[in-house]
């Protein structure tokens, strides 16, 4: 088994595998790779897995696989070499209409950073963000790697309603609101893409371990994509890129 990995109990129906105690892309990749392995190995009785920054919670049915057996299976799977199985980076493009009524706080973010709104948009949309985990709301992604220049404190008074699809900054994090929700993030834009849609065959668009790339679009493009999304005909551009 890899060093520093701990297998802990979380009640009689869950096991928590802890891979480390820091937020790092390397640990996150290990977790994604472990999930792939676990899926391929198919342990009977496993009913759900919740990956997070540096841990993986496994829900299981003890009447199918009791603790001792489950632990042994996990130990043997964790002993396998997992690094080789992740060799590419899956990037999903999220089109965003920045500023104006779509992103009412863009000017504030720019003022705070001492930049122009155009520079903020350029900085925000010029790198890929690793999805460390999904939680809080259905499909809400915890994205890592926001450029320090545009870190912006949350609003002093959170909004009671943030529009579904809003893209914002909260401190050192950036993300997309998957549904209408109260919240305190600074809103810089809006995406017509639905990251959560319960009526869709795959309700959640994004997965932990993938990357998000924000692509600036104008209002006409926003409307065009919004109509396609409404008809269920829009598919995000994706790239699979090699990682070193």
């Amino acid at each position: 088994m890899m060093p520093n990995i701990k297998i802990l109990t979380e009640g009689d129906s869950s096991i928590l595998i802890v891979f480390g105690n820091e937020v790092s892309p390397e640990i996150n990749r290990r977790i994604s790779a472990t999930i792939e392995l676990l899926k391929n190995q198919h342990i009977e009785g496993v009913i759900d897995m919740i990956p997070s920054y540096c841990a993986l919670l496994i829900n299981y049915k003890p009447e199918i696989t009791p603790y001792a057996v489950m632990r042994k299976r996990l130990e043997s799977i964790l002993a396998m070499d997992v690094k080789s199985s992740v060799s590419s980076k899956h990037v999903v493009e999220i089109p965003v209409c920045y500023g104006g009524e779509y992103g009412p706080d863009l000017q504030h973010i720019a003022d705070h950073a001492g930049l122009t709104p155009e520079e903020v948009i350029k900085i925000h949309s010029s790198r890929d963000y690793l999805i460390y985990m999904i939680g809080f709301l259905p499909g809400f992604c915890y994205l890592g790697g926001l450029d320090e220049r545009i870190h912006t404190p949350r609003l002093a008074n959170p909004r009671l309603r943030i529009r579904e699809g809003s893209v914002g900054i909260g401190g050192s994090a950036t993300g997309i609101y998957p549904m209408d929700s109260p919240g305190g993030w600074q809103l810089m834009g809006l995406t017509p893409v639905k990251t959560f849609d319960a009526s869709r065959e795959v309700p959640i668009l994004l997965q932990a371990g993938w990357y998000v790339r924000f692509v600036p679009i104008d209002e006409q493009e926003f409307e065009r994509i919004r109509e396609l999304v409404a008809k269920g005909e829009y598919e995000c551009v994706v790239h699979d890129e090699e990682v070193e």
Binding site: I47, D48, M49, I50, P51, N59, I134, G135, F136, L137, P138, G139, F140, P178, F196, P203, I204, Q207, A208
Partner: peptide, 11 residues
């Protein structure tokens, strides 16, 4: 609802 917690959907 099991199987969707990795997507932020509660049980």
């Amino acid at each position: 609802r099991y199987g969707y917690q990795s997507q932020g959907i509660s049980v």
